[in-house]
Design a binder for these strands. Structure first.
Lengths: 217, 217
DNA sequence: TTATTATGACTGACCAGTCAGTCATAATAG
DNA sequence: CTATTATGACTGACTGGTCAGTCATAATAA
């Protein structure tokens, strides 16, 4: 009982990937279903076998991005290390993830545009993604402070700034690809952790790891 | 002979303001010319007396935002003060400007989406706006380092992070209005200047100015 | 043959932009 | 002052093109 076997899920992924490429190239607003179909090498009608609507494609892209974000946050969960190390790892992973999937990252601006007018439980709850990031970062900040590595009194606002620094670098890269996104992780940590004021730490300059620690799914 | 005189420029401004309100509320993609006309209390056709096309409205919004940015950067030009003070002022002004004009700021996400696929001399050169910010910030960082207030070796990457921190806070506010944008200027400066690591500065906690120093046009 | 998947021509809604006509105003004439 | 007329701002019905989504038909495998 199975004529013409097709892996529905795999086909869906193929189409979604094609859609992400097209959205990244043209922007969601200028992307026709036909463009996506052509990119995937299938006919327009076939797209509707896997997706209910044009919006559903964007929604699926959000889902994919949301998963990646969750993965980054989960990888950070590993306890044992000092919280400060875990925070640095989180930032490096997040930046590496964004740099590793430039097309998906470029679609983010369309998700911002679409997610702006949706309430809390809406299809594109970008707010929830950032809340999750802020939550984890704020927690790590507090723990690191308890462990004596960070100054006390850090909390939500500081977490917002750290998360913001990542997203803001992303914005500049989106508008101007000559900005090297991946290369900004270390300066970002450097600025946020050590600050820009005259060096007063006795422990020398911050270690410059070779970067990259994200292992995508 | 002089029938019904109308201040064309003023009318144009009225329509643009209406458009910005509509775009902020619905997003550019979901905004019809009729919506803008209705918001301005005029007929659809009349919009075309002041603007050539729907795109021209968005372009004008970009222009307005671009002017605001230029104003912020010019206000910073005043020499005499220490570069570090000027940098702090710049960040406070930029954040205050964004917070003072929430509608125009909300349109920014549409400008990001539209500006993404335009080359260097295109109608929405958002890249140029960020380049200008980075340039001024990088310059102030270097001067402040020369003046001995900042550690040496700061440059473009650090400027990108500082500008990014502003834009990233903006993104989080756009997605989640419960984030208090105006209140993030001080934490932002605090994090970027002093860093999060255990306090080593002998001069006590960073001064918390009452914020707000932007004087819009 | 039958179940399933693929196709692309088709439809109907939508909307940017147009333009022939209306109207309020102000200049001028009587 | 009132009537007349010139002007251009304003209007909204209309047009033409676009495109999301549908569906009758074809292709293919079991």
């Amino acid at each position: 009982m199975a004529p013409k076997r097709v892996d529905r899920a795999a086909r869906r992924e193929e189409i979604l990937s094609a859609a992400v490429r097209v959205f990244a190239r043209q922007g969601f607003a200028a992307s026709r279903i036909e463009d996506v179909a052509a990119e995937a090498g299938i006919a327009k009608g076939s797209v509707y076998l896997s997706f209910d609507s044009r919006e559903a494609l964007l929604s699926a892209a959000f889902e994919r991005l949301s998963e990646r974000s969750a993965t980054v946050l989960e990888q950070t969960a590993a306890d044992g290390e000092p919280a400060l190390e875990r925070l640095s790892g989180l930032v490096r992973s997040a930046v590496a993830m964004l740099a590793d999937e430039p097309d998906l990252t470029r679609v983010m601006v369309d998700l911002w545009a679409a997610g702006r007018h949706t309430g809390d439980g809406a299809p594109f709850d970008m707010a929830a993604v950032y809340r999750a990031y802020r939550g984890v970062v704020a927690d790590l900040l507090r723990r690191a402070a308890e462990e004596g590595d960070l100054r006390p009194g850090v909390g939500e606002p500081e977490a917002t700034v750290v998360v913001g620094a990542i997203e803001g670098c992303l914005v500049q890269w989106l508008m101007d690809p000559s900005v090297r996104l991946a290369g900004l992780a270390e300066p970002l940590l450097d600025v946020c952790l050590s600050g820009l004021r005259v060096s007063r730490q006795p422990s020398g300059p911050p270690d410059r790891r070779p970067s990259e620690s994200y292992q995508g799914p």
